[in-house]
Design a protein around this nucleic acid. Structure first.
Lengths: 210, 210, 210, 210
DNA sequence: CATGAATGAGCTTTCATTCAT
DNA sequence: AATGAATGAAAGCTCATTCAT
């Protein structure tokens, strides 16, 4: 009985895992459902018991990955009060997840944009939620008088996430590594903190470069 | 002779223009060669006189767009000496081009990533050259003692371009506009300059927010 | 024991009822076994405990419907001696059944032909038996000197049944009703009787139009 | 040039001819597009240059066959004035076409009913037109005082066509032949004429059995 | 008996590319 | 150089049937 249920969940997971590998390797459009089935060790038809169609697999994969990412990040930020620290933690955690889950990262990086435009009726809410965490941190920093009030949180959020994202792309696409994840995360945080804090004292503090 | 060549160039351009529209609207994989042919007002087969295959159209489009972008940017930067100004100009010019050439921007935004991974044997050299311009500005700023020497130009380049790119994505994908291109460009430049300049005096200067 | 058997019969009936509805609505090839199962309120697999395959469901449905039709008709004809009356009764009863059991009629009308050709190894004996009743009436009429001897009963049977069948098709496929079942049955009977009776006196008799 | 055009028409015809054979042999739903392509000696994809989809092939086949049938019939009826003769000619011509074009007949017989119900948005107008010719003959006979006025032409039309159609089915489905097409056509006509004419004199005339 | 998750063969349709004209 | 009809491989998805529970 228990085995049955486990087996069922199992298939869903196995298909998602297979899709992760295939999508990451070939990209969505070049991936064949039958190859996902092969990796997942199920019949082609079985996939359609768990997913409506190929699009749905990709969407489910997004949801799954983002769900995990949000949880990881919330754990990492838990208990931290200082918005500056939070921004650093966000950068480090984000890049760490990219590094430790390269396949998921490749898909997010490459397919999430396609999907934003071409997957009909799909609004990647989990992703929006994820990005919202940055906006919140910036707004919080402004409320506490730490970040300059004239900065628009939405712009800062885009700039900050874009910076991390472009860095991720390098990790994902390139095989060379001229510097560590930590270095990248720290330098990016420093630049943004120094650029956003409100006065010189704060700037000095933020500017204690490693 | 001249007419022939002109005619050829003409078709080449028309195909590229058609591809621009189609790719922007549907995305590379959803686009049909025959639709490009239709927009270009040539026969399907004609396309294969000018391009090896569908991939080649996309690649040529990249080259074409990047060639234009680099020229625009070089013109904009010409005569400017101050790396800080250069960075501002880069941001403003980049976002301006995005805004004024939305279709090209959509393709760059969405397809360039696909291509980086999946177009076999294609290294987007023009794009790398474009990005190199940022690296050069940062390095120049460090050489002149304006930007902190501990910043790795490659990291700064990625952070800066990523910030602009993410902003572009918002322009491309969203229809709402909560702020102008100029505001975005200026805020991003300010954050980066304040974050990268070497001392407090410089920081103060950079921090003259609008 | 009895309960078991009753339960089995019960499911058999429910499946047949479900199939009746589904086949009538969608046609055999467009019908899904799983939808029959749904209507019958049994599991997909259960169907295969009562029927060999999808074809077998259709065949069983034929047998069932024809069994019922033959019984109804025999009851209606019971006690009647005059072949002319019998023909009238046949027409009226046939069309009445069509009218009162539209779903069964649709299947008979539309699918019986498919099946005659494409269901391998199936000879619709009950249907042949049903048609034989017309042949018998005609032959009986000839034996009694009422119908013209030169008429081939097989031809008359086809003509008569065809006439009724085409009328049924109208009832089944059309939603408009320009005249009643009774009118149609009577007019058809009259034409055939007037066409088949042996002399003018008979013809006159048959020709007492309503 | 001429060859080109001929070749194009040629393909359309060849596909239709192939479809005729395949549909007649297997029935619409059991027929594979690839087999039609094989018989037509074209590539699978070529079929979709001439037809929207598999349904469209069937519909086009209907139109084509009915177009031919109507023309044949009009030729056969041309110059004939007597509605009684017209009815005979209709019967004979109809059954002759069935006999000489068995494959087309099989499809008409078996698939036309399916189509009436299940091919979305398709109203077989040519077929309706064909049937309308019978209605016209009956109405004409009534106008001329030859056929009983109380007969509803629509009922007579259905009865008459149904009789012929059922006879055709016998020809199409059975391999045995107990009587000739001519015999069948003549007997059916006689029954209907005797059944429909207005008085005994007429009835006598109509009743000159062979 | 009953279930329903799993199977996988098989189908229609698309579309990049070719090549005879 | 230009055409566009023809190609045919390839893939997503369905659904009748099976079988472990």
């Amino acid at each position: 009985m228990k085995k049955d249920k486990a087996a069922k969940s199992d298939k869903y997971r196995k298909i998602l895992d297979g899709a992760l590998k295939v999508f990451a390797k070939k990209g969505f459009y070049q991936s064949k459902v039958s190859e996902i089935a092969r990796l997942a060790d199920v019949a082609d038809g079985t996939i359609y018991l768990y997913f409506r169609n190929k699009d749905d697999i990709l969407i489910s994969l997004f949801e799954d990955v983002m769900h995990y990412a949000i949880r990881r990040l919330e754990e990492a930020l838990a208990g931290e009060e200082d918005p500056r620290r939070k921004l650093e933690i966000f950068a480090l955690t984000h890049l760490s997840m990219i590094e430790s889950n390269r396949e998921a990262a490749e898909i997010l990086q490459v397919e999430v944009r396609q999907s934003s435009k071409f997957l009909k009726d799909y609004h990647n809410e989990k992703f929006i939620q994820y990005l919202g965490m940055i906006t919140d941190i910036v707004a919080e920093g402004q409320a506490k008088g730490i970040f300059r009030p004239e900065i628009k949180p939405e712009i800062a959020r885009r700039a900050f996430f874009g910076a991390l994202d472009e860095m991720s792309l390098y990790w994902v696409l390139s095989s060379r590594r001229d510097y560590s994840i930590e270095t990248a995360a720290r330098q990016i945080s420093k630049i943004f903190l120094a650029g956003m804090v409100v006065n010189n004292e704060e700037a000095k503090e933020a500017a204690k470069w490693n």
